[in-house]
Design a protein around this nucleic acid. Structure first.
Lengths: 226, 226
DNA sequence: TCTCAACAATGATATTTATCATATAAATGT
DNA sequence: ACATTTATATGATAAATATCATTGTTGAGA
């Protein structure tokens, strides 16, 4: 079993507040998993009973809307933790986590984490701050969904993907979402999303390289996004 | 100065975990304010430096969208706390709080609250759970905004207002929002909101009594809301 | 009581977005 | 390598929603 102490991704999450002994305890009780692209880490409504630490890969957090469409609420990547909210609220997961690429994740049981809450204030403060950050993002996102047009949301999302996940050598966005997934991030029909991408392409704002996307004119995209 | 110990609203918030001594400490450092309808408790971007405990009244939490329209993110009422997220994140307020009716609020300085975080685990757990609940609502809300039609959102909001704030003796909704405010809760143009209210009225789902609203057929409204 | 300003209502129209249909391109399994 | 599925693309059209213009209503303050 690999040692959390030597795992570099912990430095990027609330876990960085844990000391040597605490990390050793986690190493002993955690379980590591490989998740293949397209598989669930957990599903909406499921009891999670612990948190997941993402060692490698990216996943989407989705929620099923009553109309039957999935909405992508957030993308979560290497170094981040999953399932904190459910654990603290002591409720089933509100969102599903689905791998966008092959992933390595570690599962840490709830009991262990709750123990640290009592003893390590810095750790619980870190978790709180993370959740507060998520809340802020969610509120901002909600207002965007309610007040911005699909075009504005698409431009904004493209810039977000560019800034957050970067580009490949050929300048294409490193994170590769299907048109369908992109549509369900911005909350629109797949066809509308494709059409707007075509428009952006014709306007020279982006370039479509097969299924991949290159951002050609970021200042203009930012202007559209507001 | 009134005593927090004898204030009943604390029973409805995270503050219920505080013991007698802690409540006395708060009584000594808190300040009480009257906020008139339409006035701000705090404004987006402002440094809050503490939390507000709502003793009486209702306020709206709004965020200004880049298009210049205000969006109502949440309604907050008697017994709830305000400003927790900003305090924990150590960031300026992300939302403005505006009184919908005359309010009584108490302000508790940050230093005091942070002190309790260290010493009273139940209290910090309560705060965490509240914020987790807010996050869950925000995510749900985001998906609604992204995936539901304006009509669905209006029906849903009417039911929410009914269930949360109840009705007057004449069956009208107790909380009275202007058409403009209702529109900015559901994320649509004021005229669209008014038009849909007229439609609901003609269909016998609601009744418009001047500026007030009576829900006539809740089951059908729920069906529309999904 | 009158006046003005804010709010509510509605029509006409433009714009945005979804839906349905169909075509093409790319990926997948055998 | 071929057939079959899946994803992308685009046109035609319908539906939802926003915008602009106008009128009616209400309530607060002079």
């Amino acid at each position: 079993m690999s040692k959390c102490e030597q795992c570099i991704v912990r430095e990027f999450s609330s876990l960085k507040a844990l000391n040597k002994d605490e990390l050793i305890r986690i190493s002993e009780c955690k379980t590591s998993k490989t998740i293949k692209k397209g598989e669930n880490i957990f599903e909406e409504g499921e009891n999670v009973n612990g948190i997941f630490c993402i060692k490698d890969g990216i996943c989407k957090l989705t929620k099923l809307s009553p109309n039957g469409k999935d909405h992508i609420v957030k993308l979560v990547t290497k170094g981040e933790l999953l399932g904190q909210r459910s654990m603290i609220s002591d409720e089933p997961a509100n969102l599903s986590a689905v791998a966008l690429e092959d992933m390595q994740v570690c599962f840490i049981p709830k009991a262990e984490i709750l123990g640290f809450f009592d003893k390590n204030n810095q750790f619980s403060m870190n978790v709180m701050k993370t959740i507060c950050g998520d809340l802020r993002l969610a509120d901002d996102h909600m207002v965007n969904m309610a007040q911005k047009s699909v075009k504005e949301r698409l431009a904004e999302t493209l810039i977000y993907l560019h800034e957050t996940f970067g580009t490949n050598a050929d300048k294409t966005l490193k994170i590769q979402l299907s048109r369908d997934e992109l549509a369900s991030m911005i909350g629109t029909a797949t066809e509308s999303c494709i059409r707007l991408l075509s428009d952006f392409n014709k306007l020279g704002l982006i370039e479509l390289v097969g299924k991949k996307i290159v951002l050609k004119d970021i200042p203009k995209l930012k202007k559209i996004a507001d």
